[in-house]
Design a binder for these strands. Structure first.
Lengths: 150, 150
DNA sequence: CTACCTGCAAACTCTTTGCAAGCAG
DNA sequence: CTGCTTGCAAAGAGTTTGCAGGTAG
């Protein structure tokens, strides 16, 4: 189906990829949520508007977007991955996560984030030197029980 | 096969579980390594001494040990889990991890760990209050490229 | 003895791949 | 047109479960 390209479509082309309904829709879905969606969840949202698009395409598109750095893949240890628009392509600030081990709720927080980043940078630089390790990113989560589950 | 119980066997009994060759062997394997073994890796080590023990038993035993708090389950986002003796049952200090995204090597580090813990405690307490969240543990990893892969 | 453990096979979940058909450019 | 994309079906990887038989205490 031939169609016009939106904002995301232009970016896709800029990266050398074709602009297709599935790709644009997946990006729009990621853009319009504050949740950390799993491939299955994205697929079911995609299906509302484009039921012909398959789960495989969702996986393939997410994979591509992660490689482009547009989307971040998160793993909270649930046995499945979750995705969010990455910092530079989203309106959200850099953040870390609180994970409820009972209901699975995930809370983003940006409080103290500047202190955290500063602290992490210091540590990263020291560790990098000591272990001769080129650190490219960090992942921090706090596990526990949320408000509703206590 | 009836047999004597070693150090771990006594602990198992203390927790109300029977002492069996599989359970003891798995604990001994975890105790004698610095790596973060996956169920499959543990299974192949178990097989050397007790080839009759199945992978299912490894999974079930690890699950039980995690619930007892003897073993920690780690997820570095590889699509499989890894296990290590938990802090209180191991000779190792509390530590965090550096993960090489190319070769998969995982380095434990305990440098600056006291500063880290202190910092994390401060943040945990603030976050706990603000989000009404009972934080029970944290997980920190740094991703990047190791010495050999740069 | 008896309740707890175990191996095996099968089921399940998440993810990836091969391939022929379909569309964007 | 032509090569990138896609849907489908099937395969893979890791993990869990049901059940009959085995064993620790």
């Amino acid at each position: 189906m031939k169609r016009e390209c939106g904002r995301w479509g232009y970016r896709l082309r800029g990266f050398g990829y074709k602009c297709t309904p599935g790709r644009e829709l997946i990006l729009e879905i990621l853009e319009s949520t504050d949740e950390h969606l799993s491939p299955e969840e994205i697929y079911s949202k995609v299906s509302i508007e484009h039921p012909e698009i398959g789960l495989t395409t969702v996986y393939r598109t997410l994979d591509m977007l992660v490689n482009l750095g547009v989307v971040s893949k998160l793993d909270f240890g649930e046995g499945k991955s979750r995705y969010e628009l990455s910092e530079h392509h989203s309106h959200k600030k850099h953040h870390h996560h609180l994970v409820c081990n009972k209901c699975g709720k995930i809370i983003d927080y940006s409080d103290f984030i500047n202190e955290e980043i500063e602290f992490l940078n210091k540590i990263e630089s020291k560790l990098g030197k000591k272990y001769n390790f080129k650190i490219s990113s960090h992942f921090i989560k706090f596990d526990g029980m949320c408000n509703d589950c206590i």
